[in-house]
């Protein structure tokens, strides 16, 4: 474990908590893409199947349980608890356009052709595009509340910190996980446009920000 990966995991946790608490306290999920949250729950489900088969560390196990629980709680709030505030007219991204290529690629490009490895690869590729429905929804509604922007900022920051972690691990222990690195770079690139707008607008107190 290194400081970059720890900071990344904390940024990820903060992002998930920001969104969950926003929905819970405002008792509304307006402007939130339920599809993205379902995809994230699917990412954690397919990536953390080894939760019961391999023990890495207490931190690793605890964080997996926390991420699974919080992501399913978020999906529950959106589709069950506060479903009448769910904005289904604007959450119209065709997720099959993401799932089909990701499933195909995870069968083509993986470390070993075993169910666990293919599911892990699927989760890595899916995570890189899981935010698309949310970004699409923001372009459709024309703006995002500032709290949603903070969520996106920490979510994008988490994988950017993981990239630094991978550089660090490559130079200190020769660790190189090609699938995770390539996918993580693609994922972070999707946020670049948002990062620019976030820094130039949201941090200047503009509150609402609209993606082009």
């Amino acid at each position: 474990m290194n400081i970059f990966r720890l900071a990344g995991d904390m940024s990820h946790l903060v992002a998930i908590l920001i969104l969950l608490l926003k929905i819970w306290r405002s008792r509304s999920c307006a402007g939130i893409s339920g599809k993205s949250q379902v995809l994230f729950a699917l990412v954690f489900t397919t990536r953390y199947l080894d939760l019961f088969t391999s023990f890495i560390s207490a931190y690793n196990t605890v964080m997996k349980v926390v991420f699974l629980a919080l992501s399913y709680a978020t999906v529950y709030l959106i589709y069950m608890r506060f479903r009448n505030s769910y904005d289904s007219e604007n959450d119209t991204f065709r997720v099959e356009f993401l799932l089909v290529p990701v499933i195909g690629l995870s069968f083509l490009e993986n470390y070993s052709f075993t169910p666990m490895e293919i599911l892990w690869t699927f989760s890595i590729f899916l995570e890189s595009v899981a935010i698309m429905p949310q970004l699409f929804m923001i372009t459709k509604t024309g703006e995002a509340e500032s709290i949603t922007n903070h969520y996106l900022f920490f979510l994008g920051l988490y994988r950017a910190l993981y990239i630094v972690n991978w550089v660090w691990r490559y130079h200190t222990e020769g660790f190189f996980d090609q699938i995770a690195v390539v996918s993580g770079v693609v994922q972070t690139i999707f946020y670049c446009d948002f990062f620019y707008l976030y820094v130039t607008r949201v941090l200047r107190g503009r509150g609402k920000m609209s993606l082009p």
């Binding site: 995991d9 690793n60 660790f175 699938i179």
Partner: peptide
């Protein structure tokens, strides 16, 4: 390098 199959990252 260390084995990427050792999934020690979240």
């Amino acid at each position: 390098g260390t084995d990427p199959n050792l999934k020690d990252e979240l």
